[in-house]
Design a protein around this nucleic acid. Structure first.
Lengths: 347, 347
DNA sequence: TTCATCTGAGAAAAGGTTTTCTCAAACAAT
DNA sequence: ATTGTTTGAGAAAACCTTTTCTCAGATGAA
């Protein structure tokens, strides 16, 4: 027994407003108004049209709507970080903020290629995106694209912004302070800093914060060890720290979680106990690393999902016509305590 | 001295074909034909229109074009893997294939939420995507969306497909064979297998391949150790392998790189040399893990970028009207030799 | 009855492009 | 001089929806 009142799936051509109007015996204008709650008509007419639309499985063609409204409910997301540790949570936050508002996201990877970047920006503009978000894997490098003087609003998230643009980045200085201050609170006295290469702006920012906190707490500042962002460097750094030339640290603040992992492994190999003898704090809170470390790694989380969400929401308000003050907004990091930093020491 | 012949950036409204036509003193129809190389007109007229368009910085409105052509040069990419190890290289390959053909990608994360999934699929269809690609983080699980009987072609990549759909997955059996056969070629005799939980289909597929290769080579098959996908399990597994109850292995094939790393660390802690005493091969070739392992990890790469590219190209040909045989295509893995598997043994 | 107001609904324009159809002018052939 | 063909270019329809304008009929007041 065929059930005639089930919505019939449409296989061939999509059903248009014209179809609905014809079925309901009204004009397309009336049909449109009925479905959008606009215009004046009898409740009976409106309901009949709505019912017809429902029965036919009508869905308005966004292309036609966008063409008319000059608003596509679509934004472009540029990145140069395909495999990225940072851009993924970022993008997750951005998507969250946008899809909740019915906005779709064009994802474009521009690599390091200006030609590719220009191509993508042009394509986005041609497709009439409502706005563009630029994200990257480094806070101190530009994407290889020129986003100044576009016809749509632009937001930068975790990448070097143009002057006078609206941008969101993590507060690296604050994050570094969180880590070092936590060590101070725990009673550690000789806090070392092992971090990445000097070519990164964040390295200098965090080093400065590290120094500041030590001075504020009346502790002696030892020279930070700059290297690469790798586990191998963490190993090496431990060798340097324990070469006997200087006083042994009782805590190490690391520039990222991979370095921290290298440090912890090297310490264990030397028979030193973490956190008993030496506390370790990492940076990035990359769970896959932080949780595999023995003991699990205390780390600084840059709240990238929240940062992305903030960027998305701000873009939407910009698109909606609300102005936003240009400038760089730094969003706070948070300390995620696991076991590698230890408990308060006695005394 | 102002240079009048520089292209003037357009700040306000986008310039339309109508503007170009007016400036060039022709009708929009003629202008359209001139720019698209269609119709008949004097070379002079065509060039004048082209020059005018160039000068005005004209770019056709994709929305209008798509509306008319019923083709948007846009595809939707569904995933349930926001942070994923697997979906990222996959997406990178897909994007590659598509952007080279001028197609933009809507990225949609559907999490595990069928309501969200339906929302995204509807939005894509409303925006008249030319096709949809579904990717996931697991080969043996469906995305929480129904993609059957859509009006556009659908391709599955690295996720459980609907019956009769076109799908691409990695050849896990082949990959496992590559690893175990490599050990055999190197002269290893007692090859163990440490892998993930039984709830994963790939675990069984690889176990079977592992057994087959051992039998084919006349080696004794020891019971594979099933656990979790973590480093910690790798550690534990080594404890089991060396509990003295059974003969010690001289090689371990691991279900992923994290397990392999745990295995190698545990072996080193027991004073065993990798690859001297025991060879280790991982799976996934996650460079960040494989290269940080000491010694660097030999691993099986699933060629996910290539898989993604293949999926993208196939979708395009489907969109172009060329039929594709339904079914699951398995793409080969490859062995990436680093140091943990060792060199051929004497004898 | 006449005028004003209100009501329900359709006609038409707009958004920007592509494509088919039409047409006048120029030219060649008879 | 008449007919047929080619050429260059414009008019108009189409894609689908939204919105403004228009209008006939109904209602109410004078």
């Amino acid at each position: 027994m065929p059930s005639d009142d089930l919505p019939v799936p449409v296989f061939s051509k999509p059903v248009t407003l014209r179809d609905v109007a014809a079925q309901a015996g009204v004009s397309v204008a009336t049909a449109s108004k009925a479905l959008n709650g606009q215009g004046r008509m009898t409740a009976e007419t409106r309901e009949r049209i709505r019912e017809t639309a429902r029965r036919l499985g009508f869905r308005p063609n966004s292309l036609a709507q966008s063409l008319l409204r000059r608003r596509s409910f679509t934004v472009g997301l540029l990145t140069n970080d395909t495999y990225g540790r940072f851009s993924l949570p970022l993008m997750s936050g951005i998507s969250d903020a946008l899809v909740d508002n019915g906005v779709s996201v064009f994802l474009c990877n521009v690599e390091e290629d200006p030609r590719l970047g220009q191509m993508h920006v042009d394509a986005m503009l041609d497709k009439r995106v409502d706005g563009i978000i630029a994200t990257g894997k480094r806070i101190d490098r530009h994407l290889p694209v020129d986003l100044s003087n576009l016809r749509v609003p632009v937001i930068y998230a975790f990448t070097q912004p143009d002057p006078d643009a609206v941008a969101f980045v993590s507060d690296d200085v604050g994050g570094a302070r969180l880590a070092v201050e936590h060590f101070c609170r725990l009673g550690r006295k000789r806090i070392a800093h092992v971090t990445g290469p000097a070519s990164f702006a964040v390295v200098h920012a965090r080093v400065q914060a590290y120094r500041d906190v030590l001075v504020e707490n009346g502790l002696t500042v030892s020279e930070p060890l700059l290297g690469s962002w790798s586990e191998a460097w963490g190993h090496q750094a431990v060798a340097q720290l324990f070469d006997g030339k200087s006083e042994r640290p009782d805590a190490v603040f690391c520039g990222n979680d991979q370095i921290a992992r290298g440090v912890i492994d090297a310490l264990r190999e030397r028979g030193l106990d973490v956190p008993g003898d030496i506390g370790v704090i990492g940076f990035d809170n990359w769970e896959i690393v932080a949780e595999a470390t023995r003991p699990p790694l205390t780390s600084i989380d840059m709240n990238l999902v929240a940062l992305g969400r903030e960027a998305g929401l701000t873009l939407l308000s910009l698109v909606g016509g609300k102005p936003a003050a240009p400038g760089i907004r730094k969003l706070p990091c948070r300390l995620v305590v696991r076991q590698s930093c230890g408990h308060p020491l006695d005394g």
